[in-house]
Amino acid sequence: MKVEILLFGRLTELLGQSRLQLEDMADTNSVSKRLLDQYPALQHIRYQIAVNQEIIHGNKPLTDGMTVALMPPFSGG
């Protein structure tokens, strides 16, 4: 089971990429934890999570093929 992770804003710099795939992620908390283990600097960055373009609050279960976006505070306009 794979999920696609999209990164935006300063997160693209921190992780050095704008998308990646992760395997065996049961829920969004597992995604955050896996990335935090790999990139400890993430703990200093605030971000919201969108699953398939919907912003979520709390933890959300994931199934194969879902897209998880990590989004720092918006700064359009």
Partner: peptide, 22 residues
Amino acid sequence: KAELPIWGKEILTDESHQWKEN
């Protein structure tokens, strides 16, 4: 400004940058 997922990267005179905050 509050709801669209858009990000602005401010480019400075010496070509360094910082991320804009609304």
